[in-house]
Design a protein around this nucleic acid. Structure first.
Lengths: 155, 155
DNA sequence: GTTGTTGCAAACTGTTTGCATAGTA
DNA sequence: TACTATGCAAACAGTTTGCAACAAC
């Protein structure tokens, strides 16, 4: 269960487990694989713990993001959404140059929660994902291709 | 060249081409495939057109997003970033259930600019991309698998 | 007892809106 | 001319911060 993972992440990093943090952890776990806004979490928390403060929720979520147990994305509306980070699901991004064929892995921080949210919306429980980006790397662009289009600085 | 595409999108949709909109279009084109914040664009605009207003920049960008010529993403900081939408590059997302094998396409609005930004940061000129999401669809979950983990509503 | 944590209120930042003025088609 | 677009200032929403009171270890 995920609430334990959160609490362990806290205590094993020498953070104190207050009842507020416990409550936040519990309610995050309740959300399952669903993303939630701070306001949503705060409302559902306040229903059970009227004394909890909004600031604490913000701070706890920040902390958990730093600890790597949850992730943060910003939706179209610019509002932050959080969700449990599923450890099993990794989004492997492959960056491949279609000229020289050079392929290398790439880390995109925001990608996993975005895909996870999209999958959740389609009622799909995500287990793995794979992204392949094809393009032309800088070296090949310099060596072979004249860029075309607008050249910044040309005005 | 992209500035023409922007201006045509405006006039063909019965929007007036003011000098402000022209200026915004020109400076968007200058940014190339780079994402930019409103503030960045505004600063570079103000250098050439001191009389332009921040509100107008916001409104023009909103308009261009609606018209589909540029896209908006929100970075880690929650600040909106805009960029030309490259018409040739489409991000095909395939959603596949690994139990029943059912595969269907999925549209993820925010995905393209995100990948494009990541590619740009790696100095890669993106030409195409492909995303495959594997998971378990809702039907298969109901029929075969007992969910495991936290069941929302169980408390 | 010490040090980290909380909650309030106030500050902040990016974005949106109301309204009178100016400019386009 | 008719009606859209602009710019200012003020409102707004989400998030962050300072600080005194409090609680975990």
């Amino acid at each position: 269960m995920s609430i334990r993972r959160i609490l362990e992440a806290l205590s094993s990093n020498d953070y104190r487990v207050t009842w507020q943090r416990w409550a936040v952890a519990a309610h995050i776990a309740l959300k399952g694989d669903q993303l939630f806004t701070v306001e949503e979490l705060y409302q559902s928390l306040k229903a059970h713990y009227p004394d909890i403060g909004l600031t604490t929720v913000y701070r706890t979520l920040d902390l958990l993001v730093d600890l790597g147990v949850i992730t943060r994305v910003h939706g179209d509306d610019g509002v932050a959404r959080y969700g449990m980070r599923v450890p099993g699901v990794t989004c492997a991004v492959q960056l491949r140059c279609e000229v020289c064929g050079d392929t290398r892995p790439l880390e995109i921080e925001q990608l996993q929660p975005l895909l996870q949210a999209a999958a959740a919306e389609a009622e799909m429980l995500l287990t793995s994902c794979e992204v392949r980006l094809d393009g032309i790397c800088s070296r090949c662009r310099r060596e072979r291709v004249s860029l075309g289009g607008a050249a910044p600085g040309t005005r």
